[in-house]
Design a binder for these strands. Sequence first.
DNA 1: CGGGGATTTGACACATATCAAGAGCGGTGG
DNA 2: CCACCGCTCTTGATATGTGTCAAATCCCCG
Lengths: 259, 259
Amino acid sequence: MTPAALAPIPIAAAPARESEPGKVAKVPTRCSTCGLRELCLPCGLAGQAVDRIDDMVYTRRRVKRGEYLYRAGDKFGSIYAVRSGFFKTVQTLEDGREQVTGFQMAGEIMGMDGIGPDAHVLNAIALEDSEVCVIPYSRLESLGGEMHELRRQFHKVMSREIVREHGVMLLLGTMRAEERLAAFLLNLSQRFAARGYSPSEFNLRMTREEIGSHLGLKLETVSRAFSRFQDEGLISVQLKDIRILDVDGLRRAMGQGTR
Amino acid sequence: MTPAALAPIPIAAAPARESEPGKVAKVPTRCSTCGLRELCLPCGLAGQAVDRIDDMVYTRRRVKRGEYLYRAGDKFGSIYAVRSGFFKTVQTLEDGREQVTGFQMAGEIMGMDGIGPDAHVLNAIALEDSEVCVIPYSRLESLGGEMHELRRQFHKVMSREIVREHGVMLLLGTMRAEERLAAFLLNLSQRFAARGYSPSEFNLRMTREEIGSHLGLKLETVSRAFSRFQDEGLISVQLKDIRILDVDGLRRAMGQGTR
DNA sequence: CGGGGATTTGACACATATCAAGAGCGGTGG
DNA sequence: CCACCGCTCTTGATATGTGTCAAATCCCCG
């Protein structure tokens, strides 16, 4: 798998920051002036179209670290675009097993799993203090009726989510532990880069256990793989701080399946 | 995971059959008279709406066993609804690794992964002589502009695909071999039932290797799990012919993760 | 009727899980 | 500001599930 398979969003942009205390910001929320425009739902929309979707987003919502943005079973009403911060989405089974289905960062869309069942299937939890744009589905729907481009763009976003999940399936189905972790790191690196951050030096917002849950591994295995990569000089790890020293080496580590 | 997580399509209908030789059938292709209507894209559309989407499907296409419906890299142009037969979708890596991302049967939609990248990401291969309805994306798109319900329905179909893949991810990430196979069998059973076939007796169209690829297992492991289930009296296996003898037992086998 | 692929089964190897212990870091309260 | 406590992380020893390799049988297709 290429990193691109996990992180479809291609265009770089500067991160945006600005917000009020309280759950719902009164600040006007405009896609047209948002720094994440080129990474987010409006990506690719022509000038005048962007203006017309400005009222697609009514509100923003702040979610503190550890808090739920939505829970499995919640009635579906809106999708969410991450404005700042970091989330994980988790699927839980009755018997207690759970799987982190993904990590979301600025510009990425969450909640599309809820459209079909009309209720959320996943739990979305903030890994750090975060802020999202709330996009009421009914609003998106009706705007989509008038705007060919928005409709198409939304289809693309959903399609890319499907493709991203194919990538994770392939990772879970065919890769061994170190390959999975290498793919994961390269994917994160690429997504940070697309947001104007360093691709070689970043901070993990999630624990080893959460990484393991996402990659189908136990936390000890994740930890050992990190150590191994460090011993081999591919990366340097200091708890959550990662520095990638040898991208090509990591790529090789990702592709070396004996299986 | 409940079987529903893998097979979102809920409503029962009789299977449909009727076709010409040749790649493209001249027979008028109407959603409104199709026996699969309630399982397929038009599901839930009100009477008059169904009539209006009749010209959404221009053509049908026959695909012989072993043939490709589309290949990874093909320019994206249409999505496909399975009219009869059975498909697998496969993701391939440069290094030769591959993963069966799903099996598709009558009424299920394929090809949505192509919308975002504007090219197909997967390979779709017929597991038996099959027929699909070709739905040009541009047509679906423009019809969606006029018809609120169709737009919404299409979103649901894509959303359910996302949810289905979450289910597979959970399976691959957290279940052991026998649990995976049990979940797979229960899922197939439910989907056959939804199409008016026996839920307890059916024919696998795929090989052990293809099942293994889908479940992240080797074919020998799949074979052993089948044998074990048979020894335990949960199913009876005769190569591709499966009979489920103890559904609750299978459910238990699916949920009994010690992990 | 022949042949090649699919399936089953066994023996063994190996990757990762499991269990366990200890260290490091960060947040909280005195 | 310091000390404590809990959580996260690392590392080791061992267990175990699944992969790997191999051989025999079966079935379907030509």
